[in-house]
């Protein structure tokens, strides 16, 4: 099989398009690069959707945590403690076991049957766990930034007669995002890296359609050689992490564009987040 054939056969293998059977003997470099790259579709799917939903939920939870009302603050605190205080690995296991317990046939709600079996699939169940997890971490970051919004900014907003939603939308929220952005970039990178845990923890890979690390382990197990497959998946991750930093850097420049002086480069300090 030539490399071009391998690519047409396996490039979309992880989402069920193309050749069904995985190579079993005579693994060449092209097969490994193609299949591991194909698995990366899942990592990007999980990371992008979890970050998208998590961003909005986290803003809400951060506002609840900052609120004076104990009925809002307490649940937000508990939620953040629960998801930041326990390992994602265990959260995946627990979520899977809990979702499997739901009745197979679906739940009757006012005569309508709500299907539940799709929840035990990785694309839905693992995505929900990832969304909740990133929501908790991001909410903590956003809350810290919210507490650091300068008092003068709020007084200026009051002086302009801004209040309620307008004040939040035009003063508080942009400043909060600007302050939180470097830490939030770290969180996004951690989440992207955490997507590799999905198929190692409870959620089965349906018809061997797994993520990039799933295929890398497949090759490492079959060839008994870790020195090819793992560097390939590491290379893919370095590349996409750099792209992620680039994208978040663009947003960072936009958030800081009104400030005098040069825009500070976004610094990635992995140790200071989670």
């Amino acid at each position: 099989m030539t490399c071009a054939e391998t690519i047409t056969n396996y490039a979309l293998r992880s989402i069920g398009i193309g050749e069904r059977l995985l190579p079993r003997t005579d693994f060449d470099l092209c097969q490994q690069i193609t299949l591991i790259g194909s698995g990366l579709i899942w990592n990007l799917y999980f990371a992008s959707l979890a970050l998208f939903f998590g961003f909005f939920f986290a803003t809400g939870i951060a506002m609840a945590k900052a609120s004076g009302n104990a009925f809002l603050r307490r649940p937000a605190d508990a939620f953040i403690f629960l998801f930041r205080g326990s390992p994602l690995f265990i959260q995946f296991f627990l979520a899977y076991e809990a979702l499997v317990l739901l009745p197979r046939a679906g739940i009757d709600v006012f005569g309508m049957t709500v299907a539940t079996s799709w929840l035990t699939k990785a694309w839905a169940g693992a995505l929900i766990v990832l969304i909740l997890n990133t929501t908790a971490y991001s909410a903590q970051i956003f809350h810290g930034a919210l507490m650091s919004v300068p008092k003068g900014d709020l007084e200026a907003a009051d002086a302009y007669g801004l209040a309620g939603w307008t004040k939040f939308r035009r003063v508080v929220w942009p400043t909060m995002l600007r302050l939180a952005w470097p830490s939030y970039t770290n969180e996004a990178i951690f989440l992207f890296h955490a997507t590799t845990l999905v198929f190692f923890s409870g959620f089965p890979a349906f018809q061997q359609r797994g993520d990039s690390l799933y295929y890398a382990t497949y090759f490492a197990d079959k060839t008994f050689n870790p020195f090819v497959a793992y560097p390939i998946v590491a290379g893919y991750f370095v590349l996409f992490t750099l792209i992620l930093i680039g994208l978040f850097g663009m947003v960072n420049r936009r958030l800081n564009q009104h400030l005098p002086g040069a825009v500070k480069r976004l610094k990635y300090r992995p140790q200071l987040v989670r």
Binding site: H193, A194, T196, L213, A220, P226, Y230, F237, V238, T241
Partner: peptide, 20 residues
């Protein structure tokens, strides 16, 4: 090296590489 690569890859790679 830990910046761009998920830690789990190291956890899978280091023991088997060291063993071999």
């Amino acid at each position: 090296m830990v910046r761009g690569v998920p830690d789990i890859i190291f956890f899978l790679f280091v023991p088997i590489a060291l063993d071999q």
